[in-house]
C-alpha cells in the first residue's frame, strides 16, 4: 500500500485530527507542509510523529516528484502547483528525494 496521492487543495487537512507531536490519542496526527522551490525542499531535516503526514507542495516552476525508497513511494510527475501527501506510519529515518533532481532531498525522522 502506498500512502501518497495528488490532492487538489486542502486534501491533507482531511487527515488531521487534533493534537501534535505529543498527542496521546491514537488517532491524533499532524499535517506538515514542505515546499519545493528553486530545486530545493524548504527544509533539509525534520522530525514528525508516527501517523503524521507531510504535504509536499511544488511551488517551483519545474516538475518534481517524491521518491522514498525505504517506503516504496514513487509519486510520478508532480507539476508546478501540485501537492503530494505522504503518511508516515512507521518510525525510522527516511530520505525523501526528488527522483528528477536527486540533489533535492530532505531527511524525515519519524518518532
Amino acid at each position: 500500500m502506498k500512502y501518497f496521492g495528488f490532492k487538489a487543495s486542502t486534501g491533507a487537512a482531511a487527515l488531521v485530527a487534533v493534537g501534535g507531536l505529543g498527542a496521546i490519542s491514537a488517532f491524533a496526527s499532524t499535517s506538515h507542509v514542505v515546499s519545493q522551490a528553486e530545486k530545493a525542499f524548504s527544509t533539509k531535516k525534520m522530525e514528525v510523529a508516527v501517523g503524521d503526514s507531510i504535504t509536499f507542495v511544488n511551488d517551483d516552476k519545474v516538475k518534481h516528484n517524491i521518491v522514498i525508497k525505504k517506503m516504496d513511494v514513487s509519486s510520478g510527475i508532480q507539476k508546478p502547483g501540485e501537492k503530494i501527501d505522504v503518511l508516515f506510519d512507521k518510525n525510522g529515518k527516511f530520505k525523501v528525494r526528488c527522483g528528477i533532481h536527486p540533489k533535492m532531498k530532505v531527511t524525515v525522522v519519524v518518532k
Binding site: 516528484n65 510520478g76 510527475i77 527522483g99
Partner: peptide
C-alpha cells in the same frame, strides 16, 4: 548535475524509466 537525461542515443535500454513508474520523461 547528478540527474537523468535522455540524450538521444540509439538504445533499447529504458534506463531510469524502469525505476520511476515508467514515466515517459
Amino acid at each position: 548535475d547528478d540527474s537523468f537525461h535522455d540524450i538521444g542515443l540509439d538504445t533499447d535500454d529504458v534506463g531510469r524509466a524502469a525505476e520511476m513508474n515508467d514515466m515517459p520523461e
